[in-house]
């Protein structure tokens, strides 16, 4: 398969987040954050610019706090590999409203396209199943994408959807990076009258 035939991450995320309703999004640092922002800024997106390895845990805390809303963690293979152990807590807690979507380009895109372990044998969906996720799957073809997106949006969690995407750089689309601002607007949007802090 050539790079041009592989899924385009921006298109994938745009489909995933279209008509998102009340969905809450935590995006891991680097391209996944840019992807989420490029799909349309929303106060219910929390863009990480650091805290590598923490996106899944952050999604879990949010999912436990907001059990009535869908929480989607949108992250990369490199970010998730750094916090692989955190999947054990996600699996154990069985948060039904939590989905982790991995945009897997098998590369550390921000640091010079070095290969990650997913390009060398690590199967993240298999890891997710082994630690107790209810559903986990890997897709690489356009034809499988609609069903994968449906599972990410509606499947009983915890869900992991690994989407193999092109390693071609998608370019910059920089979301706000003032963490306190991102926190405040998220809490206002989600908690309404409850005092933002």
């Amino acid at each position: 398969m050539t790079a041009s035939e592989k899924l385009n991450r921006r298109e994938v995320v745009k489909s995933l987040l279209s008509n998102r309703g009340e969905t809450l999004v935590v995006s891991g640092l680097g391209q996944p954050a840019y992807d989420a922002f490029a799909a349309g800024d929303d106060p219910r997106n929390f863009y990480l610019w650091g805290a590598m390895g923490g996106a899944a845990s952050m999604g879990l805390g949010l999912a436990v706090a907001q059990p009535e809303r869908r929480v989607v963690v949108l992250t990369g293979d490199g970010e998730l590999l750094m916090g692989l152990g955190s999947l054990a807590a996600v699996g154990a807690e069985k948060a039904g409203n939590l989905a982790i979507v991995v945009l897997d380009n098998e590369r550390y895109g921000e640091t010079g396209q070095q290969k990650t372990h997913t390009g060398r044998g690590t199967d993240l969906a298999a890891v997710a199943m082994a630690v107790g996720f209810r559903t986990a799957l890997t897709v690489a073809d356009e034809a499988d994408l609609p069903e994968a997106i449906r599972i990410a949006r509606e499947g009983e969690g915890p869900v992991m959807v690994v989407i193999k995407v092109s390693e071609a750089p998608a370019g910059m689309a920089l979301p706000p990076k003032d963490g306190a601002y991102l926190k405040m607007r998220f809490r206002e949007a989600v908690l309404g009258d409850r005092t933002p802090g």
């Binding site: 809450l24 935590v26 952050m58 805390g61 706090a65």
Partner: peptide, 14 residues
């Protein structure tokens, strides 16, 4: 993991 988890908890009001 707990630092990140509790950040997420706070975003959701916990």
């Amino acid at each position: 993991e707990g630092i990140a988890l509790l950040g997420g908890a706070w975003l959701g009001g916990d």
